[in-house]
């Protein structure tokens, strides 16, 4: 366990060295947050509520999605693992006396830990300065951070599965892009699921992607209390566990594809 904590700590430090890039990225997230916020303002000029969301919820929602992109890792399907499969360095990773999935989960959590603050706070703060956002009390903050942590693990579980595709097809960019599109649409990232017609909305709730964006944001907005909140967190944990287990099940088949050449 100490080893994995150390791996996570190193990953945190690795990402924290790119200051200018982080700043530029946070700026981009903020810009997109503002554009979406103005769309929401226009929508709520004619509507009072959409699927249970009010203007303040929707505005908070769009800035939170921008704040969560890098922490949850929505755009990084494939990522390091896929890259190392392509270059062949994966052979070294497989020889390491650590759990393969556990090692990469630790790296991902270190990355997420850095991004939750560095890429998360700027868009949220900028949004809160210009718009009226719903900022929760200490309890909701704590519940949200727990929910966000599980969301990150679930997202990692999914991205790990996508990365394993690289063991069969060398060019992972197609699958990675398609995965990003699916996650963006079904997670509530591009638009709150509250905007969807009911049948689609319920279908989305049955898919794992809802645990990555929509549910943590609902927790932040204080839409779940008491037993209901516990149920949401348990549902997220369930999907995280299922996705991680699926990755473990596929991994041995994937590594059978590996051929190491000497020299």
């Amino acid at each position: 366990m100490r080893l994995y904590a150390e791996v996570a700590r190193r990953a945190f430090r690795r990402f924290s060295t790119y200051r200018a890039a982080t700043l530029a990225g946070a700026f981009t997230n903020t810009v997109f947050g503002f554009i979406q916020a103005y769309v929401m303002v226009a929508v709520f000029r004619v509507r009072h509520d959409v699927g249970g969301l009010h203007r303040v919820d929707a505005l908070t929602f769009v800035f939170l999605t921008q704040a969560m992109i890098m922490c949850v890792g929505l755009f990084s399907a494939g990522g390091d693992v896929a890259e190392r499969v392509k270059t062949g360095e994966i052979v070294v990773d497989l020889y390491r006396p650590v759990d393969f999935q556990g090692y990469w989960l630790a790296v991902d959590l270190g990355r997420a830990g850095f991004n939750v603050v560095a890429r998360g706070l700027p868009p949220l703060l900028a949004g809160a300065l210009v718009f009226d956002l719903r900022l929760p009390g200490p309890f909701e903050w704590a519940a949200f951070l727990a929910s966000l942590a599980v969301a990150t693990v679930a997202s990692f579980g999914w991205r790990f599965l996508v990365a394993l595709v690289t063991f069969w097809v060398v060019d992972d960019r197609g699958p990675a892009q398609l995965s990003t599109a699916v996650v963006m649409f079904f997670s509530g990232f591009i638009i709150p699921l509250n905007f969807f017609p009911d049948p689609l909305r319920w279908a989305c709730r049955a898919l794992p992607f809802v645990t990555m964006v929509q549910l943590p944001i609902e927790v932040f907005l204080g839409k779940h209390h008491g037993l209901d909140l516990a149920r949401v967190l348990a549902y997220q944990l369930l999907w995280a566990a299922v996705l991680l287990a699926a990755g473990r099940a596929v991994l041995p088949r994937a590594t059978r594809q590996v051929e190491a050449l000497g020299g």
Partner: peptide
């Protein structure tokens, strides 16, 4: 594969517009 997935991913922006207009 990449062409198709590029189509899908850029189509998401339009999906947002379409979804918004189901409400207003």
């Amino acid at each position: 594969f990449r062409l198709v997935s590029a189509c899908v991913i850029t189509g998401l922006d339009f999906a947002v517009i379409a979804v918004v207009f189901t409400k207003i």
